[in-house]
């Protein structure tokens, strides 16, 4: 037996999901962060964030069309993390790194938190 592994399939799927998001196709939830609104797909959110996984696996909450996050969450940090979910690229700005990390803690994105920690530590070392 043999199989053909399409090595870029995961990134091709993610690219298409991001195109769907940018065109607001089949997006099924609005995330409200400090009066800013972000349209997204619940499946992508819950695949990337422990918080969203908990929300959308809760039968009482899974059909909600809008989720309002804690007002302490930074909307710029959230925007960067949402882009990361759909692109695998985390835009790091020195001025926003703490906001990104705190938002990642809130969203229960532990691996991103660890990466931010390492980035801050390496910046301090320099």
């Amino acid at each position: 037996d043999s199989c053909i592994q399409f090595t870029r399939h995961a990134s091709d799927v993610l690219l298409n999901l991001n195109r769907l998001r940018s065109r607001d196709i089949l997006t099924d939830v609005t995330i409200v962060v400090n009066r800013q609104q972000f349209r997204a797909h619940k499946t992508v959110l819950m695949a990337c964030s422990g918080l969203f996984y908990s929300i959308f696996t809760d039968p009482l909450k899974c059909s909600l069309g809008a989720i309002t996050l804690d007002p302490k969450v930074d909307s710029d940090g959230f925007a960067i993390l949402l882009d990361f979910m759909y692109t695998s690229r985390l835009t790091i700005r020195e001025s926003l790194i703490l906001a990104i990390m705190n938002t990642a803690v809130y969203l229960q994105m532990d691996h991103v938190v660890d990466t931010c920690h390492r980035f801050i530590k390496s910046s301090d070392d320099r």
Binding site: S2, C3, V13, S22
Partner: peptide
């Protein structure tokens, strides 16, 4: 998979959804 010969295909795997219609 163990015991399965894997051929790697490096090209695109699916169609690309355009940015806009």
């Amino acid at each position: 998979y163990d015991g399965v010969a894997t051929i790697k295909e490096m090209g695109r795997s699916i169609h690309e959804i355009p940015k806009q219609d």
